[in-house]
Amino acid sequence: MTEAGSELAIAVCIKFTVDVNRLRPDPATAAPDLGHAHYRINDFDENALEEAVRLKERHGGRIVGVSLVEREPPRELLLRALAAGLDALYLVPHAAAASGDAFVTATILAAALEEIGAVYEMVSWDLVLCGDASCDTYDGQVGPRVAEALGIVPITYATRLDVRDDTIVAERTIEDYVHVVEATLPALVTVGSETNKPRLPHLRQIMDAGRKPIVRLTTAGLGRGALDRARATLELLGVTAPPSARRRMVVGGNGPDDVARKLVRQLQSDGELTQ
């Protein structure tokens, strides 16, 4: 499997997203307080990157990351993505990146993937890996749309995958079913948190990550007039947090039995233990 010629050219689509668990509503407007947001690599994209690294460990090859970004993400996140195993990272800055319009994102990403593939003199990527969805929009469209734009077969919601020669075998989880499929490469695969547990990178990989190439592509330079074709299809009218009104009472007591009795009494008086 590792003989010459079977090395894989893998692209991983990576989104640098808001860390949703640390995002708070602005108390005045209930809109997300993006000014104080923390950023991270999208959870599922870390799984995609990990899967790419595992495939590379088995088959050899090259892993290139591609990210459509509104503006330059914090450099420590770029270093982390590189440390996790990317050979190079391509950033495509575009104002529409923040809009969450999957058509725009996928169209530009697909054009960028073709452009980068041309840099490496490739006819096609063997494998494009994406997260099932991104944690901010939880939309799930970008992977299948990129596959469609590139004209390659999408394998969505893969929980396990392996490549043998030019065939990919994947286990997909579709609601209650496990669907085992195979396809001839090239393919686009989307993965999630069940697929693997991303490793922490080695300290030296982090400290040396800055030596790997970070290339910035401009959308204007992308082939086939990608930018003109990627006009917006959606408009975000507003984002607000619905209010929460919990009592937030801490039930304490003298040991578990006492706590339990107090809680039962409280729930009884609230009328929650009627049946």
Binding site: F103, Q141, T156, Y157, E175
Partner: peptide
């Protein structure tokens, strides 16, 4: 909005070059 449904909707959107709002 099943997993299959979202994939189909997204790909249809890309073919038709239109937007799709999921969920």
């Amino acid at each position: 909005s099943t997993r299959t449904g979202v994939e189909v909707a997204a790909r249809l959107g890309q073919r038709l070059r239109v937007g799709c709002v999921t969920d």
